[in-house]
Design a protein around this nucleic acid. Structure first.
Lengths: 350, 350
DNA sequence: GTGAAAGCGCTAACAC
DNA sequence: GTGTTAGCGCTTTCAC
């Protein structure tokens, strides 16, 4: 063992650093936390002592006194009743939409040195568990992306006064911040595009009408078409799945066989509709033009590739996290919302 | 305020519960941690006191003394040099493969009440940050899914003696546990299938040959074909991307225009190869049969849908986490590995 | 500008 | 079986 060199202990503490630097714990703490009022010379000494000892602050000890963990939860809330079904929440995490949210979240948080805790809620039990987890102080707050309308989790979190921000406007009005996309504007983009390319008999496949996003996309589409002189638009309701899109398209074709343009409220339903059109010998986009929504990976997988409305998901996720950090910083902050503008991605289907 | 009822404080501590139950902190702690040697009657009293006070243990205080956080890190390690490129790691998280790993991880961890911390490493800086984060005791260990061969992170983690388990065998032998799929067996499945369906002039598109998985898939394919009486198999190396698959297929066709069966070391390259075959007027599977590897979403998006080798990714991820928990429990545990058997998913391309 | 000292809430010896 | 007590490593008044 070399003499004269400070001992490098297995897990050095503030005390060790203080001793090595010949100062008190308090001073080392000040240097680490960037508090001024510390003599520059001593600062330097302390820094060297930190380097020499290989000191790393203990987060638990820190949290205990600051009552902050510096962690946040990224909660994915899927549908689900009171019992667990599939052991693995595969479909949810494999959804590229989730991937984009995760990317936006991590992208924003990483430079700040903070990392999201991934949680999945689909049962009453898991929701309780998540609230408990947050209350234990494992994270300072949560961002929540919910895939279904009547999710009770947002309210649970608000009631527990846990800082929370949602990815979309909640179905019921509760005092909570959220980010969202301008669904109506997106639908209008679709309507304008269909009209511009000459469609005269346009229909739409909506999402489930108890979901705010579906309502907005439908209303936005109807309004925009009305402006273009089409006061009545046939509607078939789906539930955002491929097969519901197929069924909806079948209904539409039965009642309006001459349809020449369709706006589907998401890409998956558009994909289903495309299948049905092909089966009926309709060419896309020549006979029928199709516009989807989301610009999910399904849009590219479709034949022909889908013209679709794209949200800036990563940016939205980043903003969601930024809002959460604000709320954590300032507990009294009133709920706000930030709405992002979608864009139309033109491919071959329309 | 009602009299006689215990005071429900904002954030009750063990002390509050102890007072409400008329016992000591230690006893409450024992009940909470399920330690026997506590009188059943008292246990009940304590439970009620916990319910009445709404007590939730403070994780930071607990971690401080147990030196365990009960958290683990899920690290996604992408390629990347010393500088950040894209602010958002979209492509990585949007990859359905990552989604399946996340699903398997969360599926296993959730019943245990533990949640993974999501981290992304792509630069030297982010790797340092991750090691520091773990050393601060924000998590007890890490599972790591690495997308490139020469990832320095596994070694960094091992050197810091942080419990770690990898999703795939590391390129260089380091003493670390991992789960993996039997690449050779998978390749053999592909070979057998191609031979069975009557292919006589078979070639393969390999992955980058510095990656162990690529080496194994190639070797396994060559060996299996040799057994079937085909000692020489043309090889074109790709790098797991669609365009590299296209280039490889072009090369193969230039040198072996009569090829009638191809095994691509992943689905993306198979997809690229399919494009090239169509462009050259070859029908799949009639003129040329194609088998991929991974059963990624690309396999379904291909025209025709791809016959491919599927790993049990969720199960592998669950096992990876189970191993990590074991290592955390027993720090001295020697590194082990668990190899999973792949299956062949037969679709239309072969 | 710096140090001393008092906890943050919990677990784990160790007594009884 | 239960209570007492001593910290875990850190931040943060409060003196000096």
């Amino acid at each position: 063992m070399k003499e004269g060199l400070p001992q490098v202990s297995a897990s050095p503490t503030l005390e060790d650093v203080a001793r090595a630097a010949g100062v008190s714990r308090a001073t080392v703490s000040r240097v680490i936390n960037g508090i001024r009022n510390v003599d520059p010379a001593i600062q330097e000494t302390v820094r060297q002592a930190i380097a020499v000892t290989g000191y790393v602050p203990n987060q638990a000890a820190r949290s205990l006194v600051t009552r902050r963990t510096g962690a946040i939860a990224l909660v994915v809330s899927g549908a689900g009743g009171d019992s667990a079904e599939n052991p693995f929440p595969s479909q949810v995490f494999a959804d590229p939409f989730f991937g984009r949210v995760a990317a936006g979240t991590v992208g924003f948080l990483r430079p700040l040195g903070i990392h999201p805790v991934l949680m999945f809620a689909d049962t009453a039990e898991s929701r309780t568990q998540i609230v408990a987890y947050l209350r234990q102080g494992n994270a300072d707050g949560a961002v929540l992306v919910s895939t279904h309308a009547e999710d009770p989790l947002p309210k649970l979190l608000v009631d527990a006064s846990l800082p929370t921000v949602l990815f979309a406007r909640p179905a019921r009005p509760i005092p909570i911040s959220y980010v969202d996309v301008a669904h109506r504007t997106g639908a209008q983009l679709a309507a304008d595009h269909l009209v511009t390319r000459g469609c005269r008999r346009v229909a739409t496949i909506s999402g489930p009408l108890d979901v705010p996003a579906s309502q907005d996309r439908l209303a936005g589409f109807q309004d925009a078409m009305a402006v273009h002189g089409h006061p009545y638009i046939p509607v078939a309701e789906g539930n955002f799945t491929v097969s519901s899109g197929e069924a909806a398209m079948e209904r539409l074709m039965a009642e309006h066989p001459d349809v020449d343009g369709v706006f589907a409220a998401n890409d998956l339903m558009a994909q289903g509709a495309l299948l049905v059109l092909r089966h009926h010998g309709r060419r896309v986009p020549d006979d029928v033009a199709m516009v989807g929504f989301d610009d999910s990976s399904a849009a590219l997988a479709c034949r022909p590739p889908l013209t679709t409305v794209r949200h800036p998901v990563e940016d939205m996720a980043a903003e969601m996290v930024r809002l959460l950090l604000l709320h954590i910083e300032e507990p009294g902050l009133a709920a706000t919302s930030r709405i992002f503008q979608p864009t139309l991605v033109v491919r071959e289907s329309a």
